Simulated scan of single mutants.
Amino acid sequence: MTKGSSSPGTPAILLLSGGLDSATVGAMARADGFALHALSFDYGQRHKAELQAADRVAKSLDVVEHKVAHIDLALFGGSALTADIDVPKGRTDSDRDAGIPITYVPARNTIFLSYALAFAEVREARHIFIGVNAVDFSGYPDCRPDYIKAYETMANLATVLGRSGTARIEIRTPLLHMSKAEIVAAGTRLDVDYAQTTSCYDPDEYGRACGACDACFLRREGFAAAGIADPTRYKAS
């Protein structure tokens, strides 16, 4: 369960990437009685497997609606997810501790949350759910508690909904301080079908995970630590 359950049918925006984390957040929010309006992004990423996964997860969550926003972060590049830059593979713990990896997409969560905020105003939804994590987060600056707090402050200053004074807009981050194993265990208790999700930064043309990027490493380690079978389809090595 997330912190602070809702009245049945309370509208909420769910940022849905099709990954393990966003599927778990969606299941938590649904269990708390929220009526979910899902939002995914075709943002110029190099593969569309995550959008296909988002569609599957949205259907499994029985969301009220699922919108896909089309934006072009590839216009700016600067990330292995949007530009012709190799996705790092086989990194060690010391590599991961060395700094923010090239898989970081500049300002991505800020842009995504801004779209979610606009969607929330139109749907009169005061809750925006996002699967950011400050434990297994690769050091990304837009997955940290101080960032989320600052964005929530801005959201309440920048919108008619936030300025109305009846209740605050909340950026809900139930996974923020959970390990990947804890996330997997929580989702499993809520019957999340993780076979529907994808986490890989560099899947093949069939949507199979590479098994060697940071996202695959964290996902695989999470299932192992939770003692739960990993349903991920990996391509042959």
Rank of each mutant, 00 (worst) to 15 (best):
I130L: 12
G90N: 15
H177K: 12
D42N: 13
I171Y: 09
G207W: 05
E50I: 01
F119G: 00
V57L: 03
E170I: 10
D202K: 01
N109Y: 05
D214T: 05
M28V: 05
A212Q: 13
A158M: 09
L39H: 03
D93N: 11
Y115A: 02
D230L: 08
L218R: 14
L176N: 05
F76S: 14
L176F: 05
V64G: 00
M154A: 15
P101Q: 06
G78H: 04
P141R: 08
G139M: 12
L175H: 07
D32H: 08
E221L: 12
A54M: 03
A29Y: 04
G78Y: 04
G222W: 03
S6N: 10
N133T: 15
A195H: 02
E182N: 01
P174W: 06
I102M: 03
E124T: 14
K89E: 14
E50G: 02
P8C: 01
S22Y: 02
K235Y: 14
A54D: 02
D202M: 03
A150Q: 13
D204K: 07
A116Q: 07
T24Q: 01
S7E: 15
F112H: 02
Y206L: 14
G139R: 13
G222E: 05
I169G: 03
D193G: 06
N156D: 10
D230G: 10
R126A: 13
A80D: 04
A53V: 07
S79G: 09
Y140A: 12
I130T: 15
T197V: 07
V57Y: 01
T159A: 10
S237P: 13
L51W: 04
H66S: 01
K67R: 10
R91H: 06
S179E: 04
V160W: 08
Y151A: 10
Y234L: 15
A53M: 04
G77A: 11
K149H: 14
A125T: 06
Y43M: 01
I183P: 00
D136E: 14
T166S: 11
I128A: 08
A226Q: 09
I13A: 02
L81Y: 02
A116K: 06
F76V: 13
P106A: 03
Y43S: 01
F76H: 15
V57C: 01
T173G: 03
K89C: 05
N109D: 09
S40P: 01
R144V: 12
F41D: 00
D97S: 12
I171Q: 09
H37L: 10
G165P: 00
T198C: 05
G131Y: 13
L20Y: 08
L117T: 06
M1R: 07
L14R: 10
